[in-house]
């Protein structure tokens, strides 16, 4: 919260340093709130997956839940890439589950227990890292499998000869934009949702401060909207994780099968 009791909707995105660790060059590596939530997400994910490791023929509820997630991603990889996509399922699955966990943790009402929730995926540094990682894997797989033939990606089938000067340029630009769109989409969706919720929350606080009549008149509709938006944000948390994984799988498909 900023000065004069005003709610600053951007404050929630600030990464707090918790303690210093070591230096890399003149860059300091510290344990931060962001790092804490990533560690928690990783551990929660690990605990969740352990529940799926009972490997029973007739699964229990937990195992069904875990197998639902794994089946969802392997089905997507199978549909988008084919049998060769199986090799990349671990990466896409890790990506999907990690992003999903971070998105959902950021939405948990942990403030009720005095903990400051923090949405790691609302940081461009994180989404950018994951997007560049995906893009790098696509490039490595593409050049490793097809060599220079990978550049034929920029000349789609059925390109008329008189457009050969234009299409590859457009394709190249759209290809190079991929990591940015991948990173920005997740970062913007998460940021926007959390800003929106904070803004509506500040409406309630400001309305109450302005008196009981204004407080009720503004607070009740704002609260109702908050409830709806919270549900929507949960949906967005899932959809954005899915979109990130889906686009990664589609880009991988380009690299594996070309066009």
């Amino acid at each position: 919260m900023a000065d004069q009791g005003k709610v600053d909707p951007m404050h929630q995105f600030e990464v707090q340093k918790m303690f210093d660790m070591f230096h890399v060059g003149n860059h300091e590596v510290a344990f931060t709130t962001s790092a804490m939530w990533m560690v928690i997400a990783g551990l929660l994910l690990w605990v969740f997956m352990i529940g799926g490791m009972k490997r029973q023929l007739v699964p229990g509820r937990w195992q069904v839940a875990v197998e639902g997630f794994t089946g969802f991603i392997s089905g997507m990889m199978n549909a988008n890439i084919g049998p060769e996509g199986r090799k990349y399922t671990p990466y896409v699955f890790s990506l999907f589950m990690f992003i999903l966990m971070l998105n959902v943790i950021g939405l948990m009402p942990l403030g009720l227990f005095g903990v400051h929730p923090f949405t790691v995926t609302s940081h461009f540094a994180i989404t950018g890292f994951l997007a560049i990682l995906s893009f790098a894997i696509v490039l490595i797989v593409g050049f490793w499998r097809h060599g220079l033939h990978f550049f034929s990606l920029f000349v789609p089938h059925g390109t008329p000869w008189w457009l050969l000067w234009l299409i590859p340029v457009i394709e190249l630009v759209s290809f190079l934009v991929r990591p940015f769109s991948l990173a920005l989409r997740l970062f913007v969706a998460m940021t926007a949702g959390h800003v929106l919720m904070k803004v509506f929350a500040s409406f309630i606080i400001d309305g109450v401060a302005a008196g009981p009549l204004v407080g009720l008149g503004v607070g009740i509709p704002s609260m109702a909207l908050m409830v709806g938006i919270s549900g929507l944000e949960l949906l967005v948390a899932g959809i954005q994780a899915y979109v990130f994984a889906l686009l990664t799988s589609l880009y991988l498909n380009d690299a594996i099968n070309l066009h």
């Binding site: 340093k17 210093d20 890399v24 300091e28 344990f31």
Partner: peptide, 9 residues
Amino acid sequence: WYAASQIFW
């Protein structure tokens, strides 16, 4: 410290 910590973690 920001970028280095984020990337590291």
